[in-house]
Design a protein around this nucleic acid. Sequence first.
DNA 1: ATCCTATTAAGAATTAATCTTAATTAGATA
DNA 2: TATCTAATTAAGATTAATTCTTAATAGGAT
Lengths: 146, 146
Amino acid sequence: METATLKNQASRFQELLEQRGLKCTYERKQIFDEVMHLREHFDADSLYERFKKRGLRISRDTVYRTLPLLLESGVVQKSAGAGHRDFFERIGIKGHHDHIICVKCGKIIEFQCEDIEKLQDKVCNDYGFKLSFHDHRLFGTCKECQ
Amino acid sequence: METATLKNQASRFQELLEQRGLKCTYERKQIFDEVMHLREHFDADSLYERFKKRGLRISRDTVYRTLPLLLESGVVQKSAGAGHRDFFERIGIKGHHDHIICVKCGKIIEFQCEDIEKLQDKVCNDYGFKLSFHDHRLFGTCKECQ
DNA sequence: ATCCTATTAAGAATTAATCTTAATTAGATA
DNA sequence: TATCTAATTAAGATTAATTCTTAATAGGAT
Ligand SMILES: [Mn+2]
Ligand SMILES: [Mn+2]
Ligand SMILES: [Zn+2]
Ligand SMILES: [Zn+2]
């Protein structure tokens, strides 16, 4: 199951590269592999730092340019975190989910709502859009902070 | 109707200030007034520039600090735009809506989906959150770009 | 093996947002 | 109304995040 997901996501990434006429470079493969090992949310710079620590010559810019490709191929999704960084996380076994964020204490809760996902598809369909990915964040006050 | 909305939003902003024990300063009033005149989406800096052009001494920082208050009081909502800026727009007569963005050409379409809004409320309720505002953006390819 | 073009590394530059400090002001109190 | 005090502000510096620039490298076709 896990292996199936990995294979599936690898091929989806490959397919996107092909479709766009993008080359399957060493760096893109490394970034894909590294992301597949991450279990928590992350940002571009922390991913870059991991390569730096391992002594791999992958530039910050390449990381920044590759993440949108992983987004669009469904390997990662938008996530939530502190500050104004872009956060990502791998779409693993638990699958896609969205986030509720407490504006007081910063607590983040993940939620899954199949009905919302379906409605999103419908909305996009209505407008002739092909949905690629989305970013859905609910901001409010958690029970403890109210 | 327009007047009613304006009055309503003004009092909601006032209420938030009171609730938080925040002072109703000249600057906050000016920013509220200026925002109420905007019909399109905008970012913090462009709002700041408007004051600068008019010769008003409102600092960039005050604009940045006031926008979250307008968000939380329901005067503005998160919007979408180019780049990594935070975009906002007034919740006017047309009411709240969300955005679909074409990843190829940047075209932005606004949509309203009452069912999604209701489901969001339900989700927050389930987790004991009091929903304050949200950011829902769908990224995909528009009809022309497919 | 050679070529052409896309991609990359490295670091500079830009951009967006936040922080610092001293001055100002709202609102409470006398 | 005058005085007081804590909150708020302006201005500009700083930090943080992302993108750009240039020259070198490498994928994949021929
Ligand atoms: Mn979702
Ligand atoms: Mn919405
Ligand atoms: Zn909280
Ligand atoms: Zn398009």
